[in-house]
Design a protein around this nucleic acid. Sequence first.
DNA 1: GGAGAAGTTGACAATGATTCTCATTCAAGT
DNA 2: ACTTGAATGAGAATCATTGTCAACTTCTCC
Lengths: 135, 135
Amino acid sequence: MTSTDHGPRPAVRPTRQRRAVAAALAGFDDFRSAQEIHDLISRQGDSVGLATVYRTLAALADAGEVDMLRNEDGEAIWRSCSDTHHHHLVCRACGATVEVEGPAVERWTSAIAGEHGYADISHTLEIFGTCPGCR
Amino acid sequence: MTSTDHGPRPAVRPTRQRRAVAAALAGFDDFRSAQEIHDLISRQGDSVGLATVYRTLAALADAGEVDMLRNEDGEAIWRSCSDTHHHHLVCRACGATVEVEGPAVERWTSAIAGEHGYADISHTLEIFGTCPGCR
DNA sequence: GGAGAAGTTGACAATGATTCTCATTCAAGT
DNA sequence: ACTTGAATGAGAATCATTGTCAACTTCTCC
């Protein structure tokens, strides 16, 4: 047990289930619903409760390791992501996703918010369209 | 006055219920859930079924007369709006809303989309924060 | 190696928003 | 008034998501 103490314990344990979710996330590039991810895991031979999938995804999103956004029906959809702040260009038909960055947009939102005295700003920006392959 | 003929429009009848929803919408500036709007209507003395409120809000949103967006829980929230394309700066605490326009953002999103060959673009951009009054 | 504490899990119930069903009611045109 | 199709409401039905709680791991300390 070589252990390095870094202040308060993370208290996050590496379990079979969490590994399965991580493995599933590694297997696709677009956004998927929790249920789809749950199915994927089953198809990979593992068995993880749906509630656990939700819990794990929420934890990962909290830790900034996955992106969660909502499709037009309000359903949560997820995918693993790079750790910088970015937005998405998502194909309406096939779900193909491109991560995009827009420093200008970041600047613009903080400027607008500041102008109106709003603090503690966050924002959502997603672009939907039809990708070249789906036309 | 612009032409009123915008193609085949399914008959929309002015009913007591639709007037009640419109009246309720006129009574607030921030985003409210369908249920809150339903409560408002009741409090104003009218009685309209919840399903009808949903149907009417959906129709109005379709017609571009109200904005519908999703809060962080994925719930649909609504408010009447101006008819130009715009975005919102919403207070996380009290729901106070400011409509903002960002030509630069519009330009940026189409540029990005074009760059990647995506067509038929739409986008969502909402800014959340804490308003001056709620700090 | 083992005991006990604390984080995790799974099966299933519970919630809650939104939609659907369908018999009834209403507005518009004749 | 009479007919017709849109509109409504009450409640059932969906469906994603969260809560419950006993059983089960993993970790730590001895």
